[in-house]
Design a protein around this nucleic acid. Sequence first.
DNA 1: CATGAATGAGTCTTCATTCAT
DNA 2: TATGAATGAAGACTCATTCAT
Lengths: 202, 202, 202, 202
Amino acid sequence: MAKQKSVAIRESILEAATKVFAKTGFYKAKALEIANKANIAVGTIYNYFKNKDDILISIFNERIGELNRTLISALQGVDDPDQRLSIILSSSISAMKNDREFAEVVTIELRQSSKFFSSTAISSVLEFLEIITDVIHDGQKRGIYRSDVDARVVAWTLLGSLENLLHIWVLSDRLPEVKHRYDISLEEGKETVERVLRRGLH
Amino acid sequence: MAKQKSVAIRESILEAATKVFAKTGFYKAKALEIANKANIAVGTIYNYFKNKDDILISIFNERIGELNRTLISALQGVDDPDQRLSIILSSSISAMKNDREFAEVVTIELRQSSKFFSSTAISSVLEFLEIITDVIHDGQKRGIYRSDVDARVVAWTLLGSLENLLHIWVLSDRLPEVKHRYDISLEEGKETVERVLRRGLH
Amino acid sequence: MAKQKSVAIRESILEAATKVFAKTGFYKAKALEIANKANIAVGTIYNYFKNKDDILISIFNERIGELNRTLISALQGVDDPDQRLSIILSSSISAMKNDREFAEVVTIELRQSSKFFSSTAISSVLEFLEIITDVIHDGQKRGIYRSDVDARVVAWTLLGSLENLLHIWVLSDRLPEVKHRYDISLEEGKETVERVLRRGLH
Amino acid sequence: MAKQKSVAIRESILEAATKVFAKTGFYKAKALEIANKANIAVGTIYNYFKNKDDILISIFNERIGELNRTLISALQGVDDPDQRLSIILSSSISAMKNDREFAEVVTIELRQSSKFFSSTAISSVLEFLEIITDVIHDGQKRGIYRSDVDARVVAWTLLGSLENLLHIWVLSDRLPEVKHRYDISLEEGKETVERVLRRGLH
DNA sequence: CATGAATGAGTCTTCATTCAT
DNA sequence: TATGAATGAAGACTCATTCAT
C-alpha cells in the first residue's frame, strides 16, 4: 500500500503557516517559506490545501473550533452567568497566550477574511458568538441580566473588546509608541472588561 | 491657481481609493483602477502620494483626524461624562454612516495597517483613543466613574466594540448568514453599548 | 497470468489517453486524468510508458500500424489502382469513424508530433505513405497512371486531403461556424476526393 | 503627451514570437524568450496582447489576412479558373518561402488552434478557404469545371495538400529520414498538385 | 505637473515524474 | 507490480512604480 496523507504533515503546514502569517501578514506570506518552515516541498502544501486562502480558513476554523469545544465543556455545570462570561474570557485569553502567533493571525487577519471569504470560512467565529449570545440570553431569561439590551450586540461587541485587548498585547511588541502608552497585561485588561460588564449587565 | 487644483486632485484620489479599497481590499486594489475612478492618469497618483501604503495611511489620518476635530469641538462645553461618551459614539457612527465606504476600509484594513505600518501611520487612531481615555479619566477624577477600572483599557475595548458594531453593519451586506442572524441597526447597537457602559462605569 | 493482465492495462491506458488527448489536447492532458479514466494509479502509467510523449507515440504507431496491416490485407488481390486507392480511403475513413477520439488525436496532434518528436515516432505514418506511394507508383509503371506527376507528392498531398476531410468532420462539433458552412459527410467528401483523383491521375 | 503604444513594438513581438513558436512550438514557447528576442521587457508583451494565445491568433490572422489581400488583388482580372488556382498556389507558396518561420508555425500550430481556440481565431483561414471555394464554384458555374464534385470539399482538401507540401518542406530540415525519402522542392510539389487538379477538375 | 507606456521583480500554482511502501 | 504521496522545476502573468515626453 502506498503512503497515506499524513495528519502530521497537515498539522505542520498549519503551524508553519501560522508563524509565517503572523510574521508577514497573509498577503505577503510566501508558499515557499511555509513549505521550508514545515520541512516539506512547496508542492506538498497543495496536496493538503486548495490554496493559500484555504490554509488561512483552516487555521481559523480548526483552532477556533477547538476553542469552542473547550469553552462548551468548561461551561458545563457552571450556572452563574457572570462566572460563565468569566470562563469565556479566561479560556479565550489563555488559548491565545499559549499560541501567540495564532493570536496575531486572528487579531490581524480575521477581519479581512470575514469580508472577502465566504461565510462558511468564518463559521467557527459565528459559533463562538453564538456561545456568548446564549450565555447572555440565558442570563436575561433567568432575570439575572437586564433585558433592555440586545444579547447579540453585547456578544458581538464583547468580541470586539476581546479582540482589541489581544490587539494591544500584540501591537505592543511591534510599536514602542503603543508599548509605552498602553503597557497593559492581558489579565489587567480582562479584569477591567469583566468589571464593566458585570455591573453593566445587571 | 495651481495649489487649488492640486488639492482637488489629491482629494479625488483619496475618494477614489477609498471606494476601491472598500470594494477589493487594500492588497488587491489596483493603482490603475484608482486612477480611472479619479479621472486621472496612474502616474499622477505618484505626484501626490509616495505609494499605495501612503494613500491608505492618508485616508486614515485625514478622515479620522477630521473626526477627532469634530469630536473635540462637539465635546466643548459638555460636562457630563455619560453625555460625552454618548457624543463620541453618535458622532463616530454618524460619520461612518455618511461614508460607508470609509467605514468598510476602517473596519477591515485598520488592523493590518496598525500592525504592518509604522505608528505614525495610525497616529490619528491613537489620538482618537486619547480623547476617549481622557473623558473616562476625567469622569474618574471627578468621582463620577468608578476608579477600579483602567481608563485606557475601557477606551481601547470601547473602540473594539464600536469597530464590531460597524463590522456587523458592513458584513451584513456581503454575508446573508450574518444579515439573517445579526440584523441590527447601528442605532440599536449604539443604544445597547451605551446602556451597558453607562451602568458599568458608574 | 501476469503478462495477460499487463496487456489489458496497457491497452486501457492507451484508450484512456486517447480520450483525454481528444478532449484537452496533448499538452493540457493530465496524467492523473488518464489514470483515473483507466482505473489505475498514476504511477502505474509509468510502468508501461516512459512518459507522456511515449503514450502519444504509441497511440499513433499502434493504431496506424493496425490500419496499415488492415490496408495491406485489404489490398491483397486487388489489381486496379483506382480501386486500390478507393480501398485505402474507405478503410482509413471507416477506421476513424469507428474511433472518433482517435481521429481527433491524429488530426490535431500528429503535426506537432512529427515536428517535435523523432522520426521513429511517426514511422507508421511514413509506412502509410509508403503504401499509397507504392499503389500510385505501380499504376504509373503499368501505364495506367500518368507519369508526369511525382508519386510521393501525390501520396503526401492525398494524406493532407484525407486529414482535412477528417478535420472538417472533427471541427464541426466544436465550431458552429464550421458546422454551418461545411456540413459535409465523410462519405460525400471521400466521393469528391476520389472523383478528382481518378480523373486527375489518368 | 506620453508615449504612444508603438506599432513597431507590436510588430517586433509578432516577429519574435513567430521565431520562438517555430523553434519550440507554441506550448513550450516562453514569454521571456519572446521578450528577449524582441528587445523588450516581458511585461511589455502584455501591454500589446492579452496572453500567449492572443499572440498566436494575431500571427495567424494578420499574416493570413495579408496573404488573402494579396491573393484577391492578384486574382483581379484573371479569368481562367486554372490560372486562378495556379496563382493561389504560387502566391501561398511564395509567401511561405519568404517567411519560413511563419510557414512552420502555420503548418504545425494551426490545427491545434482551430480546435482549441474560438472560430474567430481562425477567421482568416476560413476566408482563405472561401477564396478557393469561390474560384472553383465559379469554374463550375461557367461550365469549365465538372459539377459532380463539392467545391467546398475541393477547397478544403486542396488546403490540406498545400499544408502537407509545406509540411514536407519544413520536416525535411528536422528529420533526415524525411529529407532522404521526400526530397522534393516546393515548386516540384506545386507542379504535381496542379497537374492532378487541372485534369481532375475538368 | 500630467501622462501612460515600459519595466521586471515577484509568486502562486500546476503536474509530470519518482520512489518508498 | 501497483500504488499515490511527495517532489520541485518551471512559467505565465500581474501590477506598483518609474520616467521620458
